[in-house]
Design a protein around this nucleic acid. Structure first.
Lengths: 114, 114
DNA sequence: ACGTTTCATCGACGTCCGTCGATGTCTGGT
DNA sequence: ACCAGACATCGACGGACGTCGATGAAACGT
């Protein structure tokens, strides 16, 4: 389930009715954000010093097991919201601002109302 | 599960680390958007003429049963994304732009990077 | 008063998903 | 070569959720 390819998924929800495909793709993206653990991980990485965070520093503050944290981070990466870079034994994560911007665009209000 | 009361849930995800409560509340909101049927309903109401749509006009284009459509609309209303007004035998729905704007704010990039 | 229409609610079923312990994989140090 | 540490993957369990048919509630027309 890799969502990255289509960087510009859909027009704003308020602009035209989404077809099944667009809706499915967008829903998949929102589904990744629809979990408190993943939202906190995203938030932790976003606010980390130097703009990146090591997975080793996320397990304890999140309060979940290491496999669970790894699982959630993988989903965030697959959704294009984070990037993973392995350096030595550690994995470093960064947010992808363009991806957040894309979601903001989708939620934008109608440009002009009739 | 009524989410309306707190109109301004959280600071942007990129600003400070969300605590469990904020994350849970935000996740609940995104969960409502994390379904293709609900996204299409939201889109249909948003693009409807006069800014409102009758439930009777949403069942057929969505391609789901009437109870299912009603269920999804109720979730959207509970999440504060739609309002419902009953006029006679019909139920009319409108989008709540402030709610979408709130979500856009949460996804906003950091104001300034170090 | 009765039937019809519109919509919400209920109960049930199947599937998806978050979670964990156990295990595998790779890296670096001794 | 061996061990230890960091992380990903696997398999399994339990709960949450989308879906539908059946039913309930309310409003309108005749």
């Amino acid at each position: 389930m890799d969502l990255q390819p289509s960087e510009t998924c859909c027009a704003p929800v308020t602009e035209s009715v989404l077809d099944e495909g667009e809706a499915e793709e967008l829903a998949g993206l929102f589904k990744v954000l629809a979990d408190p653990a993943r939202l906190r991980l995203l938030s932790m990485v976003a606010t980390a010093a130097a703009g990146e965070a090591c997975a080793c520093d996320l397990v304890e503050p999140l309060g979940r097991s290491q496999p669970t944290v790894s699982h959630h981070l993988s989903l965030l990466v697959d959704a294009g919201l984070l990037t993973r870079e392995k350096r030595g034994r550690w994995a470093w994560y960064r947010v992808v601002p363009e991806r957040l911007e894309m979601l903001r665009t989708v939620l934008a209000p109608a440009a002009l109302s009739s």
